[in-house]
Amino acid sequence: MAEERKKRLALAAAQGSLDAAYSPLILATTAAAMGWEVGIFFTFFGFDIINKKRMHALKVAPIANPAFPEPIPAVPVKVPNIIGTIPGMTHIATAFMKNWMGRAKLPTIPEFVEMAQEMGVRLFACSMTMGVMGVKEEDLIDGAELVGATTFLDFAADADVSLYM
């Protein structure tokens, strides 16, 4: 607030898995908390984060994710990654992750999106993604701006920090 012009953060969120959805929302709300102008461009799978029908059901897949920790830290059994191919494992991994997030008192994805909106974060929804993925306009959360890449780049052109997530 020392300077007249506010700093600006422009984020492109292109991933729709539960873990990847948190990063842009954390950075966006933090920047807004510092008084910055913030805009997030939700594109490709990132569009799910602001899709009313899908934002509650984002998942994390353990398969091919070597970073995924052992389910029970107290039991030192190395679970082979191939186990992740068994039907239901994505559901289980997602449940674990939601549990960790809840334990850390972190908001859920829908709560995070709502918080970002309350803080003035602009949510740019990629119109091309909507067409390609067959998403209906009414599935988009209220307050999101349905735009093309041009509008986002016009916003990002004046950004101090721009990140593709």
Binding site: T30, A33, A104, K105, M119
Partner: peptide
Amino acid sequence: LFCPMPIV
């Protein structure tokens, strides 16, 4: 609470 909640 963890980042970003205290700052928010």
